[in-house]
Design a protein around this nucleic acid. Sequence first.
DNA 1: TGTGTGTGTG
Length: 678
Amino acid sequence: MSCRKIPRSVTQSSKKRDFFLNLISKSTTTEHLNQTHTQIIRNGFSNDLVTITKLTQKLSDFGLMNQAYNLFSSFSKPDIFLFNVIIRSLSHNNHHSSSFSLYYQLRKKTSLKPDNFTYALLISSSSYLESPEIGYWIHCHSIIDGFQSDPFVGSSVADFYLKFNQVQNARKAFDKITNPDAVSWNTLISGLVRNCCFSESIKVFEGMLLSGTRFESTTLAAVLPAAAELQDMRTGKYVHCLAVKTGFFTHVYVLTGLVSLYSRCGDILTSKFVFEQINEPDLVSWNAIISGYSCNGEAGFSVKLFKDFIGSGFKADSSTIVGVLPVFSPFGHLCLCKSVHGLSIKFGVNLNSSVSTALITVYSRLNEIGSARKLFDEAPNKSLATWNSMISGYTQNGFTDSAINLFKHMQILEIRPNPVTLTSILSACAQLGAITLGKWIHELVIKEEFQSNAYVSTALIDMYAKCGSIDEANSLFENMKEKNVVSWNAMISGHGLHGKGDKALNLFTEMLNTGISPTGVTFLSLLYSCCHSGLISEGDRIFRIMKTDHSIEPGQEHYACMVDLHGRAGKLEQALEFIKQMPVEPGPGVWGALLGACMTRNNKNLAKVASDELFELDPGNIGHLVLLSNIYSTDQSYQEAAKVREIARRKNLKKIPGCTLIEVGGTTIKISRHQVFE
DNA sequence: TGTGTGTGTG
């Protein structure tokens, strides 16, 4: 008899509990939840662990941390469930250190055993701390308690190591998981991407597919940035197909990832197509397409989209600004740059470090070095990139002294340079002929262990070559482990500069034998070398094979070099003939080369032809007038020389005296070369 | 019978 009665009351009680659990779950407001709590107390369920655990969690989800904690504390004997819930609440409310106090309490003051839930939560908390030590401890405890192969614990351990940039340890933890689930794989893939291990992350993604684990849209979104970074279209297109097949092609994160991928690979049309498939593009989607157009030099579209974006009521964030800015510099759109700068102030992101860096870069490129410096001085949080952008801004605008001073300032502030900083400073040294500083930077490169960086070693080669130490440049080049096309170019033009055309040509043959494909710059360096060594027929041959053997269209600079090559040899008529047969309109560089040759060869008539073209094409440039006037003077045609000077005076043009830089006893000094029109 | 890890686009 009683046997029947007890179950009935248990059933009744359990039904009531279900009722309360349901009420808690459905509570949508704090008020509602508090009313439910009152009912729970009235019905004598305030000591029911199950109900209270659920209530505690809901309170914490509503951000009512204190109430949740009081409820927990009111229990003299909480079980592991309640402990886990309160640890989770603390961790979700950023009270990470309190979770560890609770863990301590759990181990010292109770006989409860932490389970896989407890460890997963605690390790996750550890990854938000400043240093990894506590995480190491918890990880050890979890191994001792036998949770090493648990996917929840294992995933959070892997994530913990990835957050502390310990990729190898993360891999070890992942490999210990018996049956990694989608979360485990996603954690590893995205963590590898955050640690810039792009190809590894793609390999893991392939491993996941082979393992047969069902991937999620988040998996595709996680691996796409790796494919974009490596410009790996094969993986990208494969992910695209998978997304279409599985129906994830509607998912905004996946689509946005594809937009970036195609933009990065230069396929802006597909990028635009994918963008149009996004139902409701969010801020990040807009940023992806705007920066996509921007990176691919599509200024008009980029600006139009940016306007559409602002017009749809979106608030630009720092990434929008950083994404749209680069498109302005190649086209000299100072006005647009200024208006985006204004918008960045309006949206309150102008002091963001990446925004100031992008603005400094774009103003520098537009030769607005004063505005760039103002932004630099006003930037409250200067990253290394901010310093670098200002230094290279100075270097590229020829303000080498300012670049070096800023670098010295960095040294005083004990800001450690990176390869980018040193590359810029080396370029400044090369421009200045500052060999002593250059050598000191070389020592710094060795100290910081940047020798293996291709950009740095190339900048060193260029610096030594331009400062006259061709042997030093050559020995560095010989010792480079991985030479890229830029290093070869630097060494070729180094030899050219030193009048060693034959060496430059031999190096080119060697380069082709190594399997490196030449670029336009390689040919420019070669033509330049031929020019400086008087190798006319070799120069002609190089110019020919450039197009026939290597499918590189010559640019204005190549044509100008060819005119120079013939001009220097005194074959002025041939040079003119060459210009006439050019398949593209000759630019100022080409006519300038002819004018220069006329100067050395005293050819007054041809000089007039070249000058007339130059006045049309490049009216603001005083250099041409100087050359022409000098030609007339040398020829003793003083009246004509005077006429040219008169034109210059009327145009209010004044020649900035040219100078040569040499280093004497560690100091660079200027030696005036021309003193014309002063 | 109440608790969970983690990830995503620029």
